Amino acid sequence: MTTTRIQLALNVDDIDEATTFYTRLFGVAPHKRRDGYANFVIADPPLKLVLIERPGAGGGLNHLGVEAQTPAQVDASLARFSEAGLPTRVARQDVCCNAEQHKVFVDAPDVPLGFWEFYAVTEDNPANPANPDGAPTSVCELTCAAGGDQTISCCG
C-alpha cells in the first residue's frame, strides 16, 4: 500500500533558526534546503513539514496539503472530489516549492489561502524557474495572486 502524509507549510521569520528548531524537535535533518526554504520528511508522525521564510509574517500557516506518493493517487483523489461535487483546479507538471508536482487544489471555506492541495512530487527540481516576463510560473502562485495579494505565494 502506498502512503500519504499531511503537509503543513509554515511561514517563518528566520529559516536558519526554524530549521535548527524543527531538526531538534523531530530528530531529522531537512530533506531539502534552499535559500528561504526547507522541507522535512518526518516518519513519526507522518508529516511533510515545509518552512517558508517570510520575515515579518513568521508564526503563521502558509498552506495545508496532502502529499501522495504517486500521481495516480492524486488522480484518484480528484475523481473522489469531482464525484462529491467539490470545486477543484488541476495542475499537472506544476513547478512549486522547488519541485515539479502533479496536483489538484480543492477550494475550502475556512483555510487561510482558501484551498487544500493534494499532490505528488514528480521531479525534485533544484529551483523554481522564473518566466522571463516575471509572471507566476505555477498554479500555486497564480491561485494566491488571484486572491488579491500579489505578494502571497504558497511557496514563498
Rank of each mutant, 00 (worst) to 15 (best):
G36N: 10
V104H: 06
A146E: 11
C97H: 10
A68T: 11
G58W: 00
I152P: 00
F115V: 12
P136V: 04
L64M: 09
R54A: 11
E123A: 15
I15E: 00
L113G: 09
V104Q: 07
E123M: 12
L25K: 05
D133I: 03
A76F: 05
P55G: 08
P129V: 10
A146C: 08
A79D: 15
N125V: 12
P112T: 09
A79H: 10
T3N: 13
S82C: 04
A135S: 15
R33A: 04
T88N: 03
Y37C: 05
N125K: 15
L49I: 02
K48F: 11
P112A: 11
I15Y: 00
I6L: 13
V121T: 15
A130C: 09
D110I: 04
A127E: 15
P136C: 08
A57L: 14
G147S: 06
R89V: 12
V28Y: 02
D94M: 01
T2A: 14
S138V: 00
F81C: 12
G147C: 03
G59P: 07
Y119K: 01
D133Y: 02
D107M: 13
G60M: 05
H102E: 08
E53R: 08
A57G: 04
D133W: 02
V74M: 09
G148F: 06
N131I: 06
